[in-house]
Amino acid sequence: MTTARDEAGSIGDAAFVLALREKGLRDIAVLRAMERVPRGTFAPAAHREQARWDIALPLPCGATMTAPSSVAAMLTRLKLEPGQRVMEIGAGSGYVTALLDRLGAGAVLSLERYRTLAEDAAARLADLPGVHVVQADALAPSLPDGGFDRILVNGCVEAVPEHWLAALEPGGHLVTGLTVDGQCRLAVVAADGTRETGPALRLATLMPGLARVL
Rank of each mutant, 00 (worst) to 15 (best):
D27E: 15
D27F: 06
D27I: 04
I28Q: 14
A29W: 09
A29Q: 12
V30A: 04
V30Q: 09
V30T: 11
V30Y: 07
L31W: 12
L31T: 10
L31A: 07
R32M: 05
R32T: 15
R32F: 00
A33T: 08
A33R: 05
A33P: 10
M34I: 01
M34E: 04
E35Y: 14
R36Q: 14
R36K: 10
R36Y: 00
V37Q: 01
V37F: 01
V37S: 01
V37A: 01
V37H: 01
P38Q: 02
P38D: 09
R39K: 03
G40I: 01
T41V: 13
T41W: 10
T41N: 10
T41Y: 14
T41P: 00
F42Q: 02
F42K: 02
A43T: 15
P44A: 03
P44V: 09
P44E: 13
A45D: 15
A45S: 13
A45K: 14
A46R: 15
H47D: 13
H47C: 06
H47M: 00
R48W: 09
R48T: 12
R48V: 08
E49K: 14
E49F: 12
E49Q: 14
Q50I: 00
A51R: 04
A51C: 08
R52P: 05
R52K: 12
R52S: 09
W53F: 12
W53G: 00
W53R: 14
W53A: 13
D54I: 03
D54A: 06
D54C: 04
D54V: 05
I55N: 02
I55P: 01
A56G: 15
A56V: 06
L57G: 06
L57E: 05
L57F: 08
L57R: 06
P58L: 01
L59H: 12
L59E: 10
P60F: 05
C61G: 02
C61K: 10
G62Q: 03
G62D: 05
G62W: 04
G62P: 11
G62Y: 06
G62R: 04
G62I: 03
A63H: 14
A63G: 09
A63V: 00
A63N: 11
A63S: 13
A63K: 13
T64D: 07
T64R: 11
T64N: 07
T64K: 08
M65P: 07
M65V: 08
M65Y: 09
M65R: 02
T66R: 02
P68A: 02
P68N: 04
P68S: 03
S69P: 00
S69M: 00
S70Q: 09
V71F: 06
V71P: 08
A72C: 08
A72P: 13
A72N: 08
A72S: 08
